[in-house]
């Protein structure tokens, strides 16, 4: 930056202060909960002195060390949080796989067909995207009970795939539009069918867009509460509804720390995800926006 555009020191300081405050607001709650998850409840919720949560005085008294894995033991071993984790990853894996497979086909078709109906299909997708999932859930329950589909993982997976489709279509459509049409047109001139052109010309170059879209599909499936809480039975529960059910059962037994440990465990994969895919997430968020 040139000398002329350099900010005066006071403004710089103000800016630094503001960003620091925002960073604390954004990150401190996670650090605090991570730290507190290794304490006993009387330290995490400290009536006597808030510094107990830092030093772990009660934890020291009970376990002989300021840190304890008791909350994690309770959540994972006693309450079987592990099976919820496995369910979550099964759901996420198949949701991402299926919605990307059918989404790329649909998104590619939308970006390559010049007819007017593609616009209307996109508009319909936009309307579907706006529907709160919970309003759809009340439409699922009756038929799913009737056909005995309620409670199992495949049902939730297919529902999440469908709810995910409008967003996936919009995103992939805009990615495919950035891939020059000449690429697959020339393949077709050389005698490829449309599908062959897609298979041999488009698939090799589409991965950046597909990975970004996949990340958002994963986040949607991972973060969902409304669908999985209503459509899965007790044994098949995924992490988020499991944590919600902890609140009902464990609070009374005084085991809030189970829920705290479970919450921290469920946040870790998201941390790792953001760490590795920050660039893709940012580009995905801005994909629809910056073009106007």
């Amino acid at each position: 930056m040139s000398k002329a555009t350099e900010a005066p020191t006071s403004l710089k300081l103000f800016n630094w202060g503001f960003i620091t405050v925002w960073l604390i607001v954004a990150a401190f709650p996670f650090m605090w909960t991570l730290w507190g998850s290794f304490k006993v409840e009387l330290d995490f919720f400290s009536i006597a002195d808030w510094t107990n949560a830092l030093t772990g005085e009660r934890t020291q008294a009970v376990y002989g060390s300021p840190f304890t894995g008791a909350g994690y033991y309770g959540a994972w071993v006693q309450e079987g949080f592990g099976s919820a984790v496995i369910n979550t990853f099964i759901v996420c894996f198949f949701v991402v796989l299926t919605s990307l497979t059918i989404g790329t086909l649909g998104g590619y078709a939308l970006s390559r067909s010049g007819f007017r109906y593609t616009f209307w299909l996109l508009i319909i997708a936009l309307i579907f995207r706006a529907m709160p999932p919970i309003t759809l859930v009340s439409g699922y329950l009756l038929p799913f009970f009737e056909w005995n589909l309620w409670g199992i993982l495949p049902t939730s997976i297919i529902v999440l795939v469908a709810i995910n489709q409008p967003f996936t279509l919009w995103m992939l459509h805009s990615f495919f539009q950035k891939i020059p049409k000449d690429l697959d047109e020339s393949a077709k001139v050389d005698g490829c069918t449309q599908f062959q052109a897609f298979r041999f010309v488009i698939i090799p170059v589409m991965w950046p867009g597909v990975i970004t879209t996949g990340l958002f599909s994963f986040l949607l499936a991972y973060n969902d509460f409304a669908v999985t809480a209503m459509l899965l039975n007790q044994e098949n529960q995924t992490m988020v509804p499991k944590i919600a059910s902890f609140l009902g059962t464990t609070q009374t037994e005084g085991n809030v720390m189970f829920a705290v440990a479970a919450v921290v465990s469920a946040t870790v994969p998201l941390f790792i995800l953001v760490m590795f895919f920050q660039r893709q997430i940012v580009s995905g968020l801005t994909a629809g926006a910056v073009k106007g």
Binding site: T101, I102, G103, L105, G106, Y108, A109, L110, R112, S113, G114, F115, L121, I124, A125, F128, M131, T135, L136, V137, S138, G139, Y140, L142, P143, I158, V159, V161, A162, I163, Q165, P166, L169, Q194, F195, F198
Partner: peptide, 28 residues
Amino acid sequence: MKHKTFFWFFLPTALAMLLFIAFPIVSV
């Protein structure tokens, strides 16, 4: 792209949205 090719490419995603978004709205 021909209408027919478009139809086959778009069919899976259209089915998913029809069955699990459009019908539930009607059912609601």
